[in-house]
């Protein structure tokens, strides 16, 4: 079946099987930043923004997403500039193996769009669906706090 998607601002028509997930479709189409982890919505590695909201793409059928706007990590930076959340993760060393990083960044973008000045507890709750097996989360929490400050126009923490 034909699937209409706007991926990173680009209107696309893709072929997908009715039972194919958005994760499978995106990876087949070359969006390799969208990682497959558990496949059951527990690890969050597959998170993308669907109409601006971070979701587990492994649990979304491509057919259900048809007509929607999808943003992957490939679509958030432009003109050679990283998104402030990416830059904060980079500056804060909030990355080890990097497998969870695209989803963690996208989840953070969704979160900060609704809560621009979060507490650490709110940050930890916001990334509860994004598992990281490397870092212990402290550096990600600090990076998200820093990203929030950057996006509010305040001083950087890093």
């Amino acid at each position: 079946m034909k699937i209409d998607l706007t991926v990173n601002g680009k209107d696309l028509v893709m072929d997908a099987a009715p039972g194919e997930t958005l994760l499978e479709l995106l990876r087949r189409e070359g969006y390799k930043s969208v990682k497959k982890g558990c496949g059951t919505g527990d690890c969050g590695a597959c998170a993308v923004l669907l109409n601006g909201r971070a979701v587990n793409s492994c649990l979304v059928l491509a057919a259900k997403a048809s007509g929607s706007a999808v943003t992957t990590i490939e679509g958030i930076s432009g003109d050679g500039e990283l998104h402030p959340v990416q830059q904060a993760f980079l500056d804060g060393g909030a990355i080890q193996c990097g497998y969870c990083t695209p989803s963690m960044v996208l989840t953070t973008i969704d979160f900060l769009s609704r809560n621009p000045d979060p507490s650490d507890d709110e940050i930890r709750a916001a990334i509860a669906g994004n598992l990281c097996r490397c870092t212990g989360y402290d550096k990600q929490v600090a990076a998200i706090r820093d990203a929030a400050a950057r996006m509010r126009g305040g001083p950087h923490e890093a």
Binding site: G41, G44, R53, N56, L59, T107, D110, A125, N130
Partner: peptide, 12 residues
């Protein structure tokens, strides 16, 4: 609701 699943799942 804040204690139900993760934010990613609550968006779905």
């Amino acid at each position: 609701f804040a204690g139900v699943a993760s934010p990613l799942l609550r968006n779905l």
